[in-house]
Structures are given as structure tokens and as C-alpha cells.
Design a protein around this nucleic acid. Structure first.
Length: 471
RNA sequence: GCACCCUUCGUCUAGUGGUCCAGGACGCCGGCCUUUCACGCCGGAAACACGGGUUCGAGUCCCGUAGGGUGUACCA
């Protein structure tokens, strides 16, 4: 593989579902890799054994698959690489860029508490940094710390944030290997990113200061650091950090709400990244256009109204047959009775009139109610009003005419109903609404003549009969 | 506390010193279309956080203030 191949990775920790912020990070990595014809890798950061669960790992896989973010190769378990992490720590010890620290947790905690109380920086400077090995306590537990430079600057040339620098004195000697010999996140990411030949690290900007520390580890090992790009976080509608309490729903919640993966990708890409005034685009276009240069620096708020609008546009842009398939899968996922072939055919036929009226799959099912459900219908309360007064009598007269209709198409049906309204000297609306309610049980539906055509003569007449028979 | 990042309509954003009395999109308001509701179309209200500089000229550069965010773990 050529050295200039772009390799990105998404590295979630399996401590819960794939949330929307993680999904966007994954999306940006995927977009960047695909744009550059590189690779998009997946690594599960499961070194925290207490909090990691296999269920969460599965949820992340499922979430990425549903969103359509395919990764290259097998997902890597960070925990499985624990031996290699230990090896690197040992090498750093040998190189003199790390040291054993025998300070106990209690000592460190006490130091920090005191420092804070006195208003001093709570940076723990280990007394073991330059200790002679002969003074090391025998058999005592120890951690391995990075021997970080005490002077100078640490610079991150970030593709999104620009040049950011810290005084080395503000960074502590972070722990590389815990006292139980397991690696910390800092060590593990660096070793894994290096070994996986990751060229671009694209992640949330909550990791920006971590980049400074990680660069120190790269330096200590004499490795070349990857290109960093810290993208801004997504905030909740109230501007606060997106947390579970603030509607940071798992990706599957968006699926259940009836959003299309294509729409979610579109929306998420547009959150923080732009390509001029383009708002509505396909993933192929996003891949073609994507670049780190057009990623903004400020946090964005999640806005359901806009997602919904975009979703509606994607629904309208989806071929009718695909929409029926999506509906079928959606219904199956909800454990509802599956659609039979006749209903699927009706849905496909009616879809042009249906999809204009739905912004989500949930709404699409709702507006398709007159096809999916069985007669007889019990009209909704406000719909029933259209069946009051002389409406049933008028409907009955219309039914007779309909029974003799020669052609059963929306066009000819409209002709005869219009003619009927003229004879009765009523406005079309006076008969169309009762007709709609009789046929769908609702006041809202696609054009009533299309509904009749979709339903067919027998079903239409049967529903009209139901109304006539009602008390 | 300290460090770092951010700040254009309610929201997402365009804007890389003059073409910006700031453009688009969502949402909102009004209208058209119409058998309902949508879709579509037309129109409207709505923003450069504040204060100093630099410059002939600043939304665009610099400094400060305010507000927001992130980090500061033997968590990732």
C-alpha cells in the first residue's frame, strides 16, 4: 500500500449505543476516506473492561450498517492488542522516555486536593521521574509514566482548528500503563493508530488537548504523528452538550422515528460541513465534495425540524418501489403484521400521491392507512362530521352512479363525480369530502379519485356500502 | 482555578478586506394552486455578541470584554 494512502478510523468505546455525535464522527471519517479513495477502519476501544459490553459493540455495528457506513476489513478490538501496548511501554522505558512511578493513588489524590485548595495547578509531578532505580521499592505496584518535556511548546497543526499550541509545562507525565499493566487510552490509541497506519485522525474536538499529549508519545517513540482534524461537537436544541438527557438518542431511535439513512447522512454532513449553498444532496455527491477545509469550527445544534424537512425531500426523491420495500422492512422491524402482495401492489400504485404527504416513514404508514387497514372503518371524530346530515343520502345516490361506471380510472371517475355534483347543484367539495371519509375514514388523504382507482371498484363500493349500512 | 476552542437571522450555514444597506436553507407569517392535506410556486419578517484598534475601506485582520464549549482521571 502506498505511503500516501488515506486511512481514517472510527474508534468508539462500546459502553452504550451509537449516539448521533459518534455517528457524525464516523460519517466524516467515512466521507473523507471515500473521497480520497482510501480506507475507513473501525476499532472498538474496549480496554475499559468494566464498562465495555458485547451488546454495545453489536449496537455500534448495527448502527453503522443501518446508516450505510461500511468499514474496510475486520473491526479491531483494542483489548486484543494489549500485549503490544505493553511492549511499547517497555520499549519507552528502555529508551528512557518513560519511567516507573511508585506514587499511590492516595498520594496523588491528596496532592491534587491540596493543590486545588491552595489555588495551585493540580498537575501531579511524580517524584520518581528522575529517581535512581536502586531506590525503587521492591515488589511494590507501579505505573509507567511518560517522561514528558518540561519546557518548550507542543504544537498541533490541526486541519480544522488550525495551529494550536500549549506550553509543555502545562502537560503532565501521563500514565501509559496502569498498575495492573493494562494500557491507558492515551497509549493504546497512539500505538493502534500507528500500527494501523492511520493517516488522518478525525474526531470530536473534545480530544483536542489529548492530541497534544499523544503527539508527545509519537515523539517519544520516534513515530510520525498522523494528521489531526478535530471537528466541533453537536449540541442539543438548548445549546448544552448533547447528552442522554438532552436527546442524544441512539441511532436506532432515528430509524424507529422513520428517518431514511440517506437523509440522516445528508443532515449530519451538513451539520458543520458545507459545500456552498447545497442543502439537499446524495451521499455520492457528499463523497465527491467532502473536504476538511470546509468543516466549520463552531458547535452546531441538532434541529429535528430541518432533519424532518430533508427526510421528506429524500422520501419524495426515492423510487416508489424502494419506498414500499422500506415500508415493508420498517413494519417488520416494528413487529407488525407484514404487508401482503395485494397491498404492496396498491401501495406502489398509490405511492406518488402518498409520498408527497409524508416526512417520515411513520407518517407514510399513517397516510397509507386506507390501504393497509381492513374495512369497515370507524371514521375519526372530525371526519365523521362529513358523514352527518344529508351526506349519506347524497353518497347513496352517487353510489348508484358509480356502480354503473364504465371505466374505473381516476380521470373518468372524476368526470362522473363532477357531473354528479353539477346535477345535484352542489360544490365538488361537498361530495368529495364525504366520499373521502367514507373511503379512508380520514379528512386527509391523497386525491379522492386516485384513492378510488387504487382501491378498485369492488372495494370502493364495499366501503360506500359500509357507510350506507351504518346507523 | 488553569489551559485550549468557539461566537453571521430562532436553527444550520455562505461569506477568505471593497461586488454585503450580508446570500441560501429549515422554521415562522402572508398569498397562489386546490376535492382535503400535502407537494409546488410567489412574497415577507429575521443576523455580522460588545468595545477598541489596523486600513482609504472590516462580517472578513489584531487586542480586549462578555457569553458559550471542551479538557484538566491508573475513563475513553
Amino acid at each position: 500500500m502506498p505511503a500516501d494512502t488515506v486511512i481514517t478510523r472510527f474508534a468508539p468505546s462500546p459502553t452504550g449505543f451509537l449516539h448521533i455525535g459518534g455517528a457524525r464522527t464516523a460519517l466524516f471519517n467515512w466521507l473523507f476516506a471515500r473521497h480520497n479513495k482510501g480506507e475507513f477502519l473501525l476499532r472498538i476501544e474496549d480496554t475499559d473492561r468494566a464498562r465495555s459490553t458485547p451488546e454495545a459493540t453489536e449496537a455500534i455495528f448495527a448502527g453503522l450498517k443501518w446508516l450505510g457506513l461500511d468499514w474496510d476489513g475486520e473491526a479491531v478490538s483494542q483489548f486484543s492488542r494489549i500485549a503490544r501496548h505493553g511492549e511499547v511501554a517497555a520499549e519507552m522505558l528502555a529508551r528512557g522516555t518513560a519511567y516507573k512511578c511508585f506514587a499511590t493513588r492516595d498520594e496523588i489524590d491528596a496532592f491534587r486536593t491540596e493543590a486545588r485548595a491552595e489555588g495551585r495547578p493540580p498537575l501531579f509531578l511524580s517524584p520518581w521521574r528522575d529517581a535512581d532505580p536502586s531506590t525503587h521499592p521492591q515488589g511494590a505496584e507501579f505505573t509507567i509514566r511518560l517522561k514528558a518535556p518540561r519546557e518548550g511548546k507542543v504544537v498541533v497543526e490541526d486541519k480544522v482548528q488550525g495551529r494550536v499550541e500549549w506550553d509543555a509545562s502545562s502537560l503532565d507525565d501521563l500514565i501509559l500503563l496502569r498498575s495492573d499493566a493494562t494500557p491507558t487510552y492515551m497509549l493504546a490509541v497512539v500505538v493502534d493508530d500507528h500500527d494501523m497506519a492511520v493517516s488522518h485522525v478525525i474526531r470530536g474536538d473534545d480530544h483536542l488537548t489529548n492530541a497534544a499529549r499523544q503527539i508527545l508519545i509519537y515523539r517519544a517513540m520516534g513515530w510520525q504523528a498522523p494528521v489531526f482534524a478535530h471537528i466541533p461537537l453537536i449540541h442539543g436544541p438548548d445549546g448544552a452538550k448533547l447528552s442522554k438527557r438532552h436527546g442524544a438518542l441512539g441511532i436506532e431511535a432515528y430509524r424507529d422515528l422513520g428517518y431514511l439513512p440517506a437523509a440522516l447522512r445528508n443532515y449530519l454532513a451538513r451539520l458543520g460541513w458545507s459545500h456552498g449553498d447545497d442543502e439537499f444532496f446524495t451521499s455520492a455527491q457528499a463523497i465527491e465534495w467532502f473536504g476538511l477545509e470546509q468543516v466549520g469550527k463552531s458547535a452546531a445544534r441538532f434541529d429535528f425540524a430541518k432533519l424532518e424537512n430533508l427526510n421528506g425531500r429524500h422520501i419524495r426523491a426515492t423510487p416508489d418501489g424502494d419506498l414500499v420495500t422500506a415500508l415493508d422492512e420498517f413494519i417488520a422491524a416494528q413487529h407488525k403484521p407484514p404487508l401482503d402482495a395485494a397491498r404492496k401492489a396498491m401501495l406502489t400504485q398509490a405511492m406518488p400521491g402518498l409520498k408527497d404527504r409524508a416526512k417520515t416513514l411513520v407518517e407514510l404508514i399513517d397516510i397509507s392507512h386506507y390501504i393497509i387497514s381492513e374495512r369497515p372503518f370507524h371514521p375519526e371524530e372530525k371526519a365523521a362530521k362529513h358523514l352527518a346530515g344529508d351526506a349519506p343520502a347524497t353518497l347513496a345516490r352517487l353510489t348508484v352512479r358509480l356502480q354503473n361506471a364504465r371505466r374505473w380510472t381516476a380521470g373518468s371517475l372524476e368526470e362522473s363525480v363532477r357531473a354528479f355534483a353539477e346535477e345535484e347543484q352542489i360544490k365538488l367539495g361537498r361530495i368529495a369530502q364525504p366520499l373521502r371519509v367514507a373511503l379512508t375514514g380520514r379528512t386527509v388523504s391523497p386525491g379522492v379519485f386516485e384513492v378510488m382507482e387504487t382501491l378498485g371498484r369492488d372495494e370502493t363500493l364495499a366501503r360506500l356500502g359500509d357507510v350506507a349500512a351504518a346507523p
